[in-house]
Design a protein around this nucleic acid. Structure first.
Lengths: 406, 406
DNA sequence: CCCCATTAGTCTGGTCACCGAACAAACCCC
DNA sequence: GGGGTTTGTTCGGTGACCAGACTAATGGGG
């Protein structure tokens, strides 16, 4: 996102090629230096030099001492080192904090969760709670003897891509909050920080880990309290001029439709948001405590009811599915993504939402793709936290994170 | 678009810095080497070296011999050289070909136009006609003693961003046509070719020359035979996985609305496309000869009628404006662009379309920007051809075009 | 009128990253 | 044990940038 006009120097090219090796190594699994050279286009000597640096940084390791395919000197197989480093992802949401740590191969190391009412706490108190969670993570045995490469923080709201401050976050009640600056210093270095919108980072996680991995153009729909879209085009997040991109929830589908929380009528969110579904299904929780746990419970109840054939739940889900399909068709016509992923609470309701959504979307699309476009998320509710960690890995592979010798 | 994983070398950094100097020089007008150095972040010595190379390539020139601001040695002012090189843009459309040549500062050198019915001609015949037009341009006095930096070709349809072939073009009746390969060799070198979608390139032209220049996120709506959007995010075209991005014309606004040419109902194009407007205004040309000239005439008639207070024209335009506003609101909610530009034939009808469009868009937007979002194009009907030329200039400033010594 | 302060541009040496080619290492097979 | 083969390293070479010294050109003050 740092599209600042800065000159290119030796360091630029070194960083780019270090990232190139990391990327090639990820796709070419266990791989010799020689094959890395031909696959990346670099010379054997250059690859050796880059590999040395990456090994010193604890990012790659000499896998087996050798392997014997046919003839010639056996190759020293290289692979990402899963044991010495880690990346941390943190999600700050309305009523909980979540942390997720991954090893450099993307393997899950730990997931932590704390209830925390961000809306009633001050940003400082939330920062303290977040720091406590980070400390818990750092002290966890799964992270013992690992140094962090960086930390990605997912926040539902508008993040200034340049200064990494939270401009506004309706769910958290924040405006102009430089959250990372508020974090108390942790007991161990956490590396550079990356701050991003939760939907965008969830999309990034799906891009890296989901079953549709490596799809460079995808859209992640968050069915949380609101309905937003995280958009990836060419593998990079689409933010828009002011960071407002992805507001699919407030696209008007029915000018005379039901009232929406935003003050207008017939928004997609008012027709197919989680709240709307729960109300129509008769399973909405107490409106005064729309906590995460209450929502989880209500969604589970709705799914149970649907499984048991409750007509109210079934029609609510079918109608919402159709509306989601309309919304997905709009996304597809404008962005032509390779996949649209139903995330957040939609995932648990996907069995009922997906068939009508797919059908409606297909009839409203100008150029329907051969296969299915809409898929359920496989990452669950920690997608955003994982996305924070994934963002660090992606930044690493783009040479945007300086390597520390550890 | 060449996001191929290629290694970074000395040449990469040189090309990047050459482009950096071009960009800095464009924004800093007449400017000394010393100021270029501080503005770009490079050293004086590096800037000198880069300037030498760019001067040899005929791209920049020593403006005045010196200038005297206050004290110290007078500076040798540098600026883009408008006299030695040029870029060419070519537009292939259903019933005409257009060419546009610009000097490196973006100054218009010439515009040519030929009637040519691409739909009845073979692609080979069209390529021959295009080559003839290029030859006419090359022999034109305005291009005498200039060598071309590159040629950008705008085609209404789906362009494979990788191979630069036309995958499908409904207006031209082409499928899988490698147009640039079909072009006969021109009498003088035309530099590397860039092929792109007409709406995308028009957006690029608007990005560079329009009154909203340097807006990195903008959408250009083409009101031609169809209704498509050229989308720029972060200054680069958004194509989508298969190149289908921007199909705003076939977003469904009214499920039970009028039938659309695509077979569905209530598409934006069926409600607010140029054809729909002309039919509603009673000024539609003979449907069997929907040529460019006939459309131009019909649009002019409609504008005249509206100016004279014809109620049929006025209501048709107001209604279409409202619908366009709905479409723009969808675009704004999803992409958050800094501007949406009404191009093609919409430009001439903008006085009547714009007020209702702006009003409706504002009421349907989730986060309306402070000023106006929708603007009429200032580039006229040659926007796409200019966009082809602009694409070459942009590629040049990104170091994607190798410099030839001439 | 001369000298100084000031700013512009060039020049030289140095570093660093990549490349190319030669070389050493480690195997297989006969 | 000696070709053939593939791997990985080493070593000089090139090019691009940087830092700082140096020359060039000018205005102003004593």
């Amino acid at each position: 996102m740092t599209t600042t006009d800065r000159p290119a120097t030796k360091h630029t090219i070194r960083a780019a090629n270090l990232g190139l090796i990391l990327r090639t190594l990820r796709t070419h699994a266990p791989c010799s230096r020689a094959r890395l050279a031909t696959a990346s286009g670099l010379t054997k000597s250059t690859v050796s030099s880059l590999v040395d640096e990456l090994t010193a940084a604890g990012l790659i390791t000499e896998h087996g001492p050798h392997h014997t395919p046919t003839a010639g000197r056996p190759a020293l197989m290289l692979g990402p080192d899963p044991a010495r480093r880690a990346v941390l992802g943190l999600e700050v949401n309305a009523d909980y904090l979540a942390a997720s740590a991954l090893d450099p191969t993307g393997g899950q190391l730990l997931t932590l969760h704390t209830d925390h009412d961000t809306r009633t706490a001050t940003p400082q108190a939330t920062a303290q709670a977040a720091a406590d969670l980070i400390t818990r993570a750092l002290n966890h045995p799964a992270l013992a003897h690992r140094t962090l490469l960086g930390t990605g923080i997912a926040i539902p709201g508008l993040i200034d891509p340049a200064t990494h401050t939270v401009l506004t976050s309706p769910p958290l009640g924040w405006t102009h909050t430089p959250f990372t600056d508020l974090l108390p210093p942790p007991p161990a270095p956490t590396g550079p920080h990356i701050t991003g919108n939760d939907a965008t980072l969830a999309a990034l996680a799906e891009h890296r880990f989901g079953h549709l991995a490596h799809t460079p153009d995808l859209v992640y729909l968050t069915g949380e309290v609101g309905l937003g879209a995280g958009i990836l085009t060419g593998g990079t997040p689409l933010t828009g001029t002011r960071g407002h991109a992805g507001e699919i929830g407030h696209v008007t589908l029915e000018p005379d439709g039901p009232h929406c929380a935003c003050g207008r009528r017939g928004c997609l969110e008012a027709l197919a948001g989680i709240d709307a579904i729960l109300h129509a299904a008769g399973t909405a929780p107490d409106p005064h405590t729309p906590t995460n746990t209450a929502l989880t419970h209500a969604v589970a109840t709705t799914a149970d009811n649907a499984r048991n054939g409750d007509p109210r739940a079934l029609t609510a889900l079918t109608r919402a599915g159709h509306r989601l399909g309309q919304g997905c068709a709009i996304l597809a016509n404008l962005l032509d993504p390779a996949a649209i992923i139903l995330g957040g609470y939609y995932t648990d309701l996907a069995p009922w939402l997906l068939p009508p959504a797919r059908r409606t979307a297909r009839t409203h699309m100008h150029a329907p793709p051969p296969g299915d476009l809409i898929h359920p998320s496989t990452l669950g509710l920690t997608a955003a936290a994982k996305g924070g960690a994934a963002a660090v890995l992606t930044a690493l592979e783009e040479g945007r994170i300086p390597l520390t010798p550890a």
